[in-house]
């Protein structure tokens, strides 16, 4: 059965969800799904930060951290120097590329499958470890 995690952009009234199979989703995969579902992949001047839903909103910085299904998180789009935004990194790797922890259950996504990201061609199978700088994405023309 499909599982969900609910997310809400900090400034937004309503919640959205990401669906996946398994008991949890990594922070990496959740970011990837949110980027795809909202077609954010083209912009290279922001980072997505995910916070737990507690009153003091602790940022979930570890991309391999697993968020259990049915939880709710808060998402913020924060400014990054143009070209330094990491969105492309999240949608470039395969879903396991960012999760260094081998315990991650494969989480196949259903959200954002129709996102238009045809612009990224070429060297997109490269592995990213979440720390290195991403090369500037191709310019939209």
């Amino acid at each position: 059965m499909a599982s969900s995690v609910f997310y809400k952009f900090k400034s937004r009234k309503d919640e959205s969800r990401v669906n996946f199979d398994g008991t949890g989703i990594s922070v990496f995969d959740l970011k990837k799904e949110i980027i795809l579902a909202n077609n954010l992949g083209k912009a290279n001047d922001f980072d997505l930060c995910i916070y737990d839903n507690s009153s003091n909103e602790v940022e979930l910085k570890d991309d391999s951290h697993i968020i259990p299904r049915s939880s709710s998180v808060v998402v913020k789009r924060v400014f990054a120097k143009p070209g330094k935004g990491k969105a492309a990194m999240y949608i470039a790797g395969s879903s396991s590329a960012g999760a260094s922890g081998a315990t991650l259950e494969p989480s196949k996504s259903t959200a954002g499958a129709n996102g238009s990201y045809s612009w990224h061609r070429g060297n997109m199978s490269k592995r990213f470890d979440g720390k290195e700088d991403v090369p500037t994405g191709p310019k939209a023309t």
Partner: peptide, 17 residues
């Protein structure tokens, strides 16, 4: 204007509207 959708918005998550 170079972006569309949410990516085109200002960084509005920083403010409690």
């Amino acid at each position: 204007p170079a972006y569309s959708g949410i990516a085109s918005l200002p960084f509005i998550d920083e403010l409690d509207w």
